[in-house]
Design a protein around this nucleic acid. Structure first.
Length: 271
DNA sequence: GACGGTATAAGGGTCTTAGC
DNA sequence: GCTAAGACCCTTATACCGTC
């Protein structure tokens, strides 16, 4: 199995975290995979065989070839139908909104076909990316599209941008009612703009970032006990940590490592 | 569209218990 | 001692709605 991340160009670093590629045969990746929320939205292109996505009722649906996955507020289970070949664009929490034709909160926890998010241009972009033969070629195509679209669209909301940065830099420990905001807008206005832009509310993103920080430390073995890990990440105690952990992953921290979270490990290993 | 008051659901804090 | 889970109560973040 190959997993590789690529840095975006300087022009796009304000909205993108990275590009990534995942390839593997059906022998290498053949089980249901669980993805936990990480606060980012992703634009996915399946140039390999398609993937199934499990719904909360246990049924499964075929994912589109090219789509945007909105903010996750719960675990996501997916399963390959054959050989995997995925190219993805990982956006910053507020990064997709300037180029999207939909409010981010509309595609929370769901895969929305690219043409619905980007308009008719999404169809041609998707087929070009699928037809490309190398990662470098795909990155070139997406950079060309994003640079042109980002230039012609509204600049990302700076007030929302500041709030996201504060939450991320505090590793999710920032109290929402103590969040510093510009005097030109009310707290309510910030809340509304934030949810429309990021796809989750202030508190949800804060909790996701806090959990992500804790999971990153777990995966990298930067803790001795779960109690210590809970305290280190701003949880009141270990009980509080476990409660949150189960909410987002469906498992207790101990069970987490015994189950098939290899995709999550890949995505979290580098923070 | 933005603001502000208010009700309430959800979250957080604290303590306890149980299993290994 | 560590981990996991549950109960209870208080706090707070958010949704709703009327107003400007």
């Amino acid at each position: 199995m190959i997993y590789k991340e690529f840095e975006p160009s300087d022009d796009l670093k304000s909205i993108l975290k990275c590009y990534w590629v995942l390839e593997g045969t059906s022998e290498e990746i053949n089980e249901k995979q669980t993805i936990v929320p990480d606060g980012c939205m992703e634009m996915i292109f399946h140039y390999g065989d398609f993937y199934y996505q499990y719904l909360p009722d246990g049924s499964k649906i075929k994912q589109p070839r090219c789509f945007v996955f909105g903010q996750l507020t719960q675990k996501l289970e997916i399963e390959p139908s054959g050989d995997s070949g995925m190219f993805a664009v990982r956006f910053k929490p507020e990064g997709l909104q300037p180029i999207s034709q939909m409010a981010a909160k509309e595609f929370q926890d769901s895969a929305v076909p690219l043409d619905k998010v980007l308009g008719p241009e999404g169809l041609s972009l998707g087929s070009k990316i699928l037809d490309a033969s190398t990662s470098e070629e795909r990155i070139k195509l997406i950079e060309h599209y994003l640079t042109a679209t980002f230039e012609s669209s509204a600049i990302a909301d700076s007030i929302v941008n500041d709030a996201v940065n504060t939450i991320i830099s505090s590793q999710g420990r920032q109290k929402i009612n103590e969040l510093p905001i510009e005097s030109s807008v009310s707290r309510r206005t910030l809340e509304r703009r934030f949810t429309d832009t990021v796809g989750v509310n202030l508190k949800q993103l804060s909790k996701i970032i806090r959990l992500k920080t804790a999971v990153h430390k777990m995966i990298n073995k930067e803790y001795n006990t779960l109690t210590e890990l809970a305290y280190d990440n701003g949880y009141y105690d270990q009980a509080h940590f476990i409660k949150d952990f189960k909410k987002y992953t469906g498992l207790t921290p101990k069970d987490f490592f015994d189950s098939n979270f290899s995709f999550t490990h890949l995505f979290y290993e580098n923070g």
